[in-house]
Design a protein around this nucleic acid. Structure first.
Lengths: 165, 165
DNA sequence: GATATTAGTCAGAATATCTGACTAGAATCG
DNA sequence: CGATTCTAGTCAGATATTCTGACTAATATC
């Protein structure tokens, strides 16, 4: 892998492409969180977690979750069904749109969030210890900016609270 | 999503956790590459690509690919079968270990790599234009360092070429 | 040389994901 | 308004992905 892996940027012998470089730590974080949740008795799958983590505090629509997770509405509906049956989320009618329903984090889901936040904090602390404060801050800054052009669901406040309010 | 999404680091109101921040651009890159490969006539699935991109130039073992991709050996074997049937990879016996076989990129696979490298370069250029050279360099630097403690398969040259040679 | 490990496969089951078709509510437009 | 178009979500069916457990053959250990 030290040489040029398939998918490397052209001309760079020992540099992986940014996609893979992003994936590696992401996958490590994901595994750490899932393992910890499992150990704590939360039976959440990878696919469920990837949808779950994008639920807005004020509730999210299936369509928006699908966009955010880059999945079809059907897939997200299927996963939300499971999360609902397991008690992690609940669905309420959207008062602003009779067709829609809002997916919200239920108490058991909030407890799982608490548990996962602890692990996330631990992992981030470990990363910071290795990278140093400065580089960690730079990493976060770059990623936050990058999000502006790579997040398919830019559900920032202007959209969820003004355009729909 | 502007507020605190489930999984956010504790105490941070508008900052997403690093895991999600990594995932968002990664997923964007992945989708761009897969879409381009599809348009170019390469029928590679997401799961196949995630394994494929970690194949070493000198060949990789199923076990190592599984470790790198955080999947079971069975799953990787299954995906490599598909890639092999489609002509993207080939398997050769490992001269150093009679039990093992080396998965190598086949000509058709190399062509797909060429195509994907073009897209990766485009996307990276777009990101650089948005982030600026400095922040992009910082991003790459931080991720490269982070890889040292988050890549489950640190298959750098010392391992593949010396420990086994 | 017996025992334990490791690489990989086979089989079967559970999960995840997609495409296509459909229902009901909302938005548009003349 | 009322017809048409669009949007949110679901139902059904087909694939694709991934896992656990059991197994074979080759290698490493003592």
């Amino acid at each position: 892998m030290g040489g040029e892996a398939p998918g490397s940027a052209p001309g760079t012998q020992d540099e992986l492409n940014l996609g893979l470089l992003l994936f590696i730590p992401y996958r490590a974080m994901e595994k750490a969180v899932l393992d910890a949740l499992d150990a704590a008795g939360y039976d959440i799958t990878l696919a469920q977690a990837r949808v779950f983590q994008r639920i807005d505090q004020d509730g999210s629509r299936i369509t928006d979750l699908a966009e955010a997770a880059v999945l079809t509405k059907q897939t997200v509906g299927f996963l939300v069904d499971q999360l609902q049956r397991a008690g992690y989320v609940e669905r309420t009618p959207d008062p602003r749109d009779g067709r829609a329903r809002l997916v919200r984090v239920a108490p058991r889901g909030a407890a799982a969030v608490q548990a996962s936040m602890r692990v996330v904090a631990e992992v981030e602390a470990q990363w910071t210890a290795y990278l140093g404060e400065t580089r960690t801050a730079q990493l976060r800054e770059a990623l936050t900016i990058l999000r502006e052009i790579t997040d398919p669901y830019q559900a920032t406040d202007w959209r969820s609270k003004y355009n729909r309010g």
